[in-house]
């Protein structure tokens, strides 16, 4: 028992634990922030996985062609938006089932990026680390939050920006209305499906940046298993967070802690059954959803298509 406590202490006091967790949380936060916006407008956007993967690939290609991480970032965003355009136009213009479209996109993105990766084989690297003076000296978490490759810091703008858009702008009010009661929103003169399309594009944009983050901040190179279900964990984070942004980010941190624990524990030389460790994030996800899912209220029209005159 004593040795277990010691080990726990060592893990919790090692800054590498926080570094690992921050990388995972950062990735999840990119995807989950956009996903949250889309869900508030009524789309349960499962193609977020495809958006991450495609974003990761296009950013890698962007860098491969220009040698610039800035270009890679734009290329990543474009990749995510490309997937979003299919999801948005199919499900909120042509009224195709959003899950069928999302599922198809996830499979398609996996196959396509895998194939093109072998054809192009883009070379990439980690982005340059920016060390924020003073702040990085905060004990334990300082390095994790303020000594990271520079795309990490985009989050510090993206998250408050998303909050402001959803809660403080007319656009945000309208998208929340579209997610709660599309019929009433329509009667009030709001183009429900247009708002929904826009939010899916937004999710594509942030997840595309997330893909860039995967390649240039977390892993350093592209392979077709790089997204590895993280998109789904981002969706779980939104549910865990009860469809509030604060809760969603908290969900990202909790799930990231579980995801990264394997690395941290093994990194410090401890032996734990590795299959169990691999399953841990998913156990936490399911436990989290079991505890929180019934306490919160989802947007009332989540995943319900809107067709004029139909109720």
């Amino acid at each position: 028992m004593n040795s277990f406590l010691e080990a726990t202490y060592e893990i919790l006091s090692s800054s590498s634990t926080y570094m690992n967790a921050a990388l995972f949380a950062g990735l999840l936060a990119f995807a989950a922030t956009g996903e949250w916006v889309a869900e508030r407008a009524g789309t349960l956007n499962i193609s977020v996985e495809a958006m991450l993967l495609t974003g990761a690939f296009t950013s890698a290609v962007g860098f491969h062609l220009t040698d610039s991480v800035v270009v890679a970032l734009f290329a990543g965003a474009i990749g995510g938006v490309l997937v979003a355009s299919v999801q948005a136009e199919m499900s909120h213009r042509l009224a195709a089932d959003q899950f069928v479209v999302g599922l198809t996109l996830n499979i398609l993105a996996f196959g396509l990026t895998g194939f093109l990766d072998r054809e192009i084989d883009p070379t990439t690297k980690l982005a340059r680390r920016w060390n924020i003076p003073v702040l990085n000296e905060i004990p334990l978490v300082g390095k994790a939050l303020f000594n990271q490759p520079w795309p990490f810091y985009i989050l510090y703008a993206l998250i408050p920006l998303s909050w402001w858009l959803v809660y403080r702008t007319r656009w945000g009010l309208e998208l929340r209305a579209a997610g709660e009661n599309p019929q009433s929103a329509d009667v009030s003169g709001i183009d429900v499906n247009k708002r929904r399309r826009q939010t899916v594009y937004y999710a594509g944009f942030t997840s595309g940046l997330g893909g860039t983050f995967l390649v240039f901040v977390q892993v350093g190179r592209f392979d077709d298993a790089i997204a590895g279900g993280r998109g789904f964990i981002a969706i779980a984070a939104v549910i865990f967070g009860g469809w509030t942004l604060r809760g969603t980010i908290l969900g990202c941190v909790v799930f990231a802690a579980a995801l990264s624990s394997r690395l941290s524990i093994q990194g410090l030389g401890y032996e734990v059954n590795s299959e169990l460790l691999q399953a841990l994030p998913y156990i936490v996800t399911i436990a989290g959803m079991a505890i929180f899912a019934h306490r919160v209220r989802a947007p009332a029209a989540l995943a319900r298509p809107f067709v004029r005159g139909l109720k």
Partner: peptide, 18 residues
């Protein structure tokens, strides 16, 4: 069908403005 329960009174009132 013209009000949205999850929004406040003022948010509902301004819905549809520009």
């Amino acid at each position: 069908f013209s009000l949205i329960d999850a929004l406040t009174v003022w948010e509902n009132v301004t819905l549809g403005d520009s």
